[in-house]
Write a protein that binds this DNA or RNA. Structure first.
Length: 190
DNA sequence: TTCGCGATGGCCT
DNA sequence: GGCCATCGCGAAA
């Protein structure tokens, strides 16, 4: 029984979606392999007023997907060599997305001879895309279809005390918006 | 442990 | 032409 997240989940406030994605399972099916990974770190990018958001300069061919239906991916290339995976949120015509910055591999099959093994932490948006074979071909992908790339509900949501908020990474140019605590990660106090 | 830098290409001015 | 939601390496401290 799969619990693929429905479009309704994504069509909410981006900060809520970013928090609620922690602990969810990101699943990638590619060339006969399937990886399940728990989302451990996210960042919210919300609206044209958010100077760190790519949509702060308005709608272009690159950013139009953020103005589209929630629950789709926004995958873009950065620094000429890495891709970043984002999930489009909010209502249609309001540009916003959640960047997936970190995951932990839960299972990998077939298990033997894999370069990715259970327990691996993929920290960093570029690294994560590289290992899970996520590139521009997966831009504008509908995550509610439950194929190739999708997200499922967690078996157990992380406790509130285990969620830490902080400043977003790599956006020092964003003036006052750099101070927003729009980065969320699971940090077990144990 | 922190800092500086190069690789590399598409997007926006 | 400049900048960038990155990463890993090597040097400095």
């Amino acid at each position: 029984m799969r619990k693929v997240l429905p479009r309704k989940f994504y069509s909410r406030n981006t900060l809520k979606v970013a928090r609620d994605l922690l602990g969810c399972f990101l699943i990638r099916e590619c060339r006969g392999k399937i990886w399940r990974a728990m989302i451990t770190e996210t960042e919210a990018y919300r609206g044209e007023d958010d100077l760190a958001c790519h949509a702060s300069r308005g709608k272009t061919s690159r950013t139009e997907v953020m103005y589209g239906e929630p629950g789709h991916t926004y995958v873009y290339m950065i620094y000429g060599m890495y891709y970043c995976l984002n999930i489009v949120t909010e209502q249609k015509d309001f540009p916003a997305a959640v960047l997936i910055r970190g995951v932990k591999i839960i299972s990998s099959s077939p298990a033997r001879g894999e370069e990715l093994e259970e327990g691996w932490e993929l920290n960093g948006p570029g690294k994560l895309c590289k290992f899970l074979h996520i590139d521009r071909k997966l831009n504008k992908w509908d995550l509610t279809k439950g194929k190739k790339l999708w997200i499922e509900k967690p078996t157990q949501n992380p406790a509130k005390r285990d969620i830490v908020a902080g400043r977003r990474i790599g956006i020092d140019y964003a003036q006052h918006c750099r101070e927003y605590l729009w980065r969320f990660q699971i940090d077990y106090q144990d």
